[in-house]
Amino acid sequence: MSKETIGFVGVGLMGQGMAENLLKAGFAVNVVTHRNRGPVDDLVAQGATEAKNLAELAAVSSVVHICAPGSPQVEAIVDAMMPTLQAGSVIVDCSTSDPNSTLALANKLAQAGHHMADAPLGGTPVQAQSGELSTMVGADLGVFERLKPVISAWAKTIVHIGPCAAGHKMKLLNNFLSLGYAALYSEALALSEKVGISTKEFDSVIRGSRMDCGFYQTFMGYAVEGNRESHKFTLSNALKDLRYLEAMADEVGLSNPIGNAAKNSFAMALSAGGDGPNDYIPHLVDFVAARNGVSRA
């Protein structure tokens, strides 16, 4: 059986490393530029082929990966590719998307003879580069088996969660935990400073204890060490994910008070100016501190 031909839309922080690993695994990879030509030029130099637009990319690819900011962008990308998709193509959405949107796209693609899978990512750009990401996949079993050799090129840990949209549901639950931690850490540190316990003193107690974890360490990489790029995931994306979580809870009639509290913490940060491309999750600590009259200078 011949290898799939891969299309890749969104070769940014995560996508570039993923596409590189697909090339290393021997797949033919087609890419398309958006705003930043740098990653595309780099991938072409490694053997990828550049398509002029999404329609051209769809016409020469049997499996198309999408790494986009959210569901509106994914929907627009799929709509642009639909007329020229090869028969039986698979769209793999690696974004953190709204599961309701994912199911609607899956239905639209199925009616045209294509397939949808969601494979949101766990890990960092460094892990994307090394092919050691994790992913939680939502897809019919046959589609999942077809995709396994492809996904194995860029992911070390692959979990088939269930049918289409199950991966996106699990990703939102995962992000609920991490973003909830961020909101909790930010409020705890503001209160700590307010009652006379410095951030460094706070960290000396928590680090290495049962309350320590990998996310805590990257968060405190900024709060304690001042590394502004310790966790490069924007506040705006965090708020988007918590809004999707809220919609998922609403869909099944679940009370989600802690999720809403975390969402409001991020919404406050964005309304206070944290909506830039270099405003990352650990910087939430500054916005919560400022809101409470605490100086972190």
Rank of each mutant, 00 (worst) to 15 (best):
M1S: 10
S2Y: 04
S2L: 03
S2N: 06
S2Q: 06
Q16I: 15
A19R: 15
V32N: 00
H34M: 11
G38H: 11
D42F: 11
L43Q: 07
K52C: 11
K52P: 11
L57Q: 00
V63Y: 12
H65N: 14
C67P: 07
P69D: 02
S71I: 04
V74R: 03
D79L: 07
M81G: 09
M82I: 15
L85M: 15
I91D: 01
I91H: 05
V92I: 03
D98G: 06
A110T: 03
A112W: 07
A112K: 08
A112T: 04
G113V: 15
D118S: 02
P120W: 11
V126Y: 10
Q129H: 13
S130K: 07
S134M: 14
G138E: 08
G138L: 11
D140Q: 12
V143N: 04
V143Y: 06
K148D: 12
W154T: 15
A155L: 14
T157R: 08
I158D: 03
I161L: 13
P163E: 12
A166R: 01
H168E: 05
M170D: 01
S178K: 11
A182T: 15
Y185I: 13
Y185G: 04
S186C: 01
E187R: 13
A188I: 05
S198K: 02
S198Q: 06
T199Q: 02
R207Q: 05
G208D: 09
G208W: 04
G214W: 07
F215K: 08
Q217K: 14
M220P: 12
G221R: 04
V224G: 10
V224L: 15
S230D: 13
K232H: 05
T234F: 03
L235D: 03
S236M: 11
N237V: 07
L239E: 11
D241Y: 08
L242W: 14
R243W: 13
R243P: 09
A249R: 01
V252N: 01
S255A: 13
I258L: 09
I258G: 08
N260A: 08
A261Q: 09
A262F: 05
S271M: 00
D275M: 12
I281D: 13
L284I: 05
F287H: 09
V288D: 02
R291I: 01
R296K: 06
A297I: 15
A297Q: 08
